[in-house]
Nucleic acid binder design. Structure first.
Lengths: 149, 149
DNA sequence: TTCATATATTTGTATCAACAAATGTTGTAA
DNA sequence: TTACAACATTTGTTGATACAAATATATGAA
């Protein structure tokens, strides 16, 4: 289905507008599927994203600012997002001794376990979302999207 | 810049995961730019989207459900979004006489004027966002994204 | 040392969105 | 004709998000 059909556009779209709408619409479709996969775990996509960033630190704790620059959604309030993860005991926070303005956030054992449980579902979901794409097409899509950055 | 650099990934990503993240990340970049363009007009992207849907009706009023199925973000509460447009007098609402469960929403003269003012900015912004893309690349990108639907 | 500035995070507030339940309306089948 | 399910939208509630201002700490210059 093309984007004009998807949003039932009554007017023909100029190519650039069409592509911009298509990028946003496609992202919604993907997000919906990922969010649905995470729902049973009570995690929002942003929370899941932060957990994976914390795991990527490989034991080293992360500052709030480090988390922020690695997030998909650079949101304005990472403090409260991390609060949620701490409430659920998937992460913990301490004050950085060498620079007491900073906080050190790290993933807990329970957070790692959760990610280990979700990992195969994420892989399966991503494969499902992109099931109609050849490796070649994935590469082309990535290369084109990279031009936006 | 590629997606791994953008999110400063510390681990290599599998191709499907990479593409899924890339789609979401790219959409954020685009949305940020569009939102910034709309900000001086006090319109959110969703509000702007609904206004354009209403204009696309060419004088015919739209039901809430029609608006919803044409929106980029299928959100759960279109009522309150439309409320905002009515507050600003860009849209008006009346009850459908033939089926009193339905509402009829239409764009006002002032809403049309606003869109006319924003139209060239949208075109310019979309061109700017996609300035590095040839027509061929736009087509390829659209075709690939359409495979998600 | 003291002051100004920069940095890192948190808090307050107002708005926005998701989800479920409620309201009002229509169609239809006994 | 009334009882019930389906439909279309609205409302209540709770949680998320954006933005600005506040807090706390560090750094560097006079």
């Amino acid at each position: 289905m093309n984007i004009e059909e998807a949003i039932k556009s009554t007017v023909p779209l100029n190519p650039h507008t069409k592509t911009v709408l298509n990028i946003m619409y496609s992202s919604r479709i993907v997000e919906e599927k990922v969010a649905e996969m995470l729902k049973p775990y009570g995690l929002s996509m942003q929370q899941y994203n932060v957990l994976r960033i914390l795991r990527g630190q490989k034991g080293k704790p992360a500052n709030l600012s480090t988390i922020q620059e690695r997030m998909i959604n650079k949101m304005s309030n990472t403090t409260r997002l991390v609060d949620k993860l701490i409430e659920k005991e998937f992460a913990e926070r301490s004050i950085c001794e060498s620079n007491r303005r900073k906080v050190e956030i790290s993933i807990t054992h329970s957070g790692l376990d959760l990610l280990t449980e979700i990992d195969p579902l994420t892989l399966a979901k991503n494969n499902e979302i992109l099931k109609d794409f050849s490796m070649n097409e994935l590469n082309t899509l990535n290369t084109l999207l990279d031009k936006l950055k």
